[in-house]
Simulated assay, not measured.
Amino acid sequence: MPAPIGPQSRPLAPQQTRELPPPPPASAPKAAPAAPAMTLDAFQPKQLLPNPLELLTELKSGLKTKLFLKTPPGAPVEPVLRNSEGARNPLAYDAVLDQFSVAVSPRYEIKADQKTHCNTYVWDATKAMGCELPIAYDPATGEPGKVNGKAKVGEPIWAKPAVETNANGQVDWLRKHGPSRGWRKISPEEAQARANAGHPTVLAWKNPDPSQSGHVAMVRPDRAGPYDAKNGPLIAQAGKTNFEHGYAHPKLTGIANKGEIEYWTHD
């Protein structure tokens, strides 16, 4: 698999500073520790958002690493950063994606079984954005699966009737259940524009060979310039190659002329 096609680095938001409050009196009680989860609210020009590089350093050096960098692919995780409908912006979108550290996280590595984990990564990212593209769901209703807390070792973790699926199953979910849950199909150019505005957007491809898995990836904001139809949208993915930034070019995705590449977006 060739190296990812795309920018080697992306410009970060200018360094922001804030005025520190005066130190509390010596007799003041210590403040309670902050909650581990953080919601990125509607963007304000002076709002301080996490620097992705600082965030990754924190994730890799602290307890949070154990929460999702080392969690098995089929198990749910609780992300540190979340974002929801009505509070979209590209900085929040980038921060949510970057926390998963897809290029280096053991959660998305190809192990001895040679399975790739594109479906897990997109599940993680969309769930953190409040528009879950489930990895397990009820085939009849499309309802995302719930963990069976009584499952024994070696048994499926999902309570019936939910079944775990691959990327092909996620594409099926988008087509059958996505529109009723806020997802809509758009063009590649619209996909990049939507991601640039901070709206969750995915690349989805169903493999024509039902014995082989398809592919899903996250379209992400691109600040490199106007949309380039030759290279396609900028994406982050887990797969045969895991990367944070690379264009959805046939040489990178490996899915040209093998069925339609679809793009779906959510508000």
Rank of each mutant, 00 (worst) to 15 (best):
L91Y: 15
A75L: 11
D94H: 10
L91H: 15
E109K: 11
L63G: 01
S61I: 04
A112K: 11
K115T: 09
N83Q: 15
R107C: 06
H117N: 06
K127Q: 15
V77W: 10
P76H: 03
L53C: 00
L56K: 15
Q114G: 01
S105M: 08
P79K: 09
A128D: 14
P79S: 10
A128W: 06
E78I: 08
L91T: 15
G86F: 03
D94R: 14
P106Y: 10
P72Q: 12
N89C: 07
P72S: 08
G74T: 07
V102Q: 04
P90N: 06
N119F: 14
C118F: 00
F100G: 07
A95H: 01
P76G: 02
L56T: 15
K60H: 05
L55R: 10
W123C: 07
G74C: 00
K64L: 12
E85C: 05
E109R: 12
A87K: 11
S84A: 13
N51R: 11
F100K: 09
Q114P: 00
W123D: 09
A128R: 12
Y121M: 08
A103E: 13
W123K: 04
S105Q: 10
D94T: 12
P50G: 08
S61T: 14
E85M: 07
V77Q: 07
L63W: 06
Q114V: 02
P50E: 07
Y108W: 13
N89F: 06
A125Q: 00
L91C: 02
L56S: 15
Y108I: 04
L49Y: 05
A103I: 00
P73Q: 04
P106S: 06
R88M: 08
P76A: 03
A103V: 02
I110E: 08
E78H: 04
L63N: 03
V80E: 14
A103Y: 04
Y93A: 08
T65F: 12
E78S: 09
P76F: 02
P76Y: 03
D124N: 15
E54Q: 13
L97E: 08
Y93H: 14
T120D: 12
V80R: 14
K66Q: 15
E78R: 11
R88C: 05
A75F: 10
